[in-house]
Structures are given as C-alpha cells and as structure tokens.
Amino acid sequence: MATQDRKNTGGTSSAEEEDLDTPAPAAPAAAQDSGQTQGVDDLLDEIDGVLESNAEEFVRGFVQKGGQ
C-alpha cells in the first residue's frame, strides 16, 4: 500500500531521541554557562558574517505590495 507510518511517527531524528532518553550529565554550572556563552558567540559571529551590509538601507528597501 502506498502509505505507512513513518518510523517514530513524527520522523523524530534518532539523535533527538537520544537526547530525550538520556539525561545530560550534570555539568558544573559555571562550565555549562561558559559553554553556552561560547555557543552564542559562535552563532553571532556566524550571523555577523552573513548579514546584509547596510542594515538600514536593506530593511528600507524591503517593500511588498498587497497580499492575502
């Protein structure tokens, strides 16, 4: 037959399932915080690298007409 339920129904990735099933080891609060800060810094660096260069002008130029 044409259809069948997807494994894990939601199509949840196995990685995510592991996250749910396996509690993360308790890290010392300070270490966790610095790890998170590092992740955020990385992310902002990455976004800095792709943001359009002239924010004000670019945003002003995004003009749409009508729509449902």
Binding site: M1, A2, T3, Q4, D5, R6, T9, G11
Partner: peptide, 10 residues
Amino acid sequence: IVTGGRETGQ
C-alpha cells in the same frame, strides 16, 4: 517517499 499516512488496506 515513505509518507506519514496511515497504513491501510482499502
């Protein structure tokens, strides 16, 4: 494509 529809006979 394995879709999310239910298994069904007819």
